[in-house]
Design a protein around this nucleic acid. Structure first.
Lengths: 122, 122
DNA sequence: ATAAGTTATATATTAAAGCATATCACGTCT
DNA sequence: AGACGTGATATGCTTTAATATATAACTTAT
């Protein structure tokens, strides 16, 4: 069987996670000053696996992805498509652009005080 | 609680998808009058696979789950944990309980007019 | 330059998802 | 009764995530 032509007929599902999802995850990780090794260690994943997920080379199981985003203080929510824009804008307005100019009063106030219980969103 | 000592050794990732997620998916499917066969056919999944996912027996890949929820007019959004309650209440208020009491002033303003492009949320 | 830290690649093994197909159990309907 | 639709189970087979480990490539200090 030289090459096996029969394979490439049906389109595989995805080549990786959606690009923006991957970027958000990576961004959140870097923001925390964590390396891939550090992130993976918290949920028992080896660094190469994190690398593959972030680079889009592998598509993780849902539970794996959920663990990743949760240690990054994020979550995956099931949202009606009609509400997606509203939710996104809500997120956008809440997210401070901590990048360019840093605030005059950098209170370094950790808002993380609220979240503690392992709530099950779904 | 003489519960089952053998379980808490190694924390397996999950025994399945989060219960509520599965229920929401099933609810959305039934609401549309679709069977598992019908839902699966739309994304190229066999009925037994849908059954396994809904019953929590198997944890799908993220891309698989994403396809499922999208044909159900739902989506999976990455949300900061601090905003989860706000998003959930937003969803709750928007979701009309078309069964019980219907609002006196049902404005039924369908905002869906906007959504037509296959937006990539992530 | 070199040492240290981070990320990307590579190989190998195991477990499980993905896929196809068949069948059984349970209702419901005429 | 039988036919039908739905969902749960079962059996193979293929693909791939998950895991472990090692190492190369690349950055950034010192």
């Amino acid at each position: 069987m030289a090459r096996d032509i029969t394979k490439r007929i049906k389109p595989l599902r995805l080549k990786g996670l959606p690009t923006e999802l991957r970027e958000h995850i990576k961004e959140a990780r870097v923001q925390r000053g964590w390396g891939q090794r550090e992130l993976g260690a918290q949920i028992g994943l080896p660094q190469p696996h994190i690398s593959g997920i972030e680079s889009g080379e592998i598509v993780p199981r849902f539970d794996t992805l959920l663990e990743i985003v949760r240690v990054l203080d994020l979550d995956l929510l099931l949202v009606p498509r009609s509400l997606v824009p509203a939710v996104q804008s809500l997120i956008r307005t809440q997210k401070q652009p901590e990048s360019a100019e840093r605030p005059l009063y950098a209170a370094d106030d950790e808002e993380s005080a609220s979240g503690k219980k392992d709530h099950d969103e779904f």
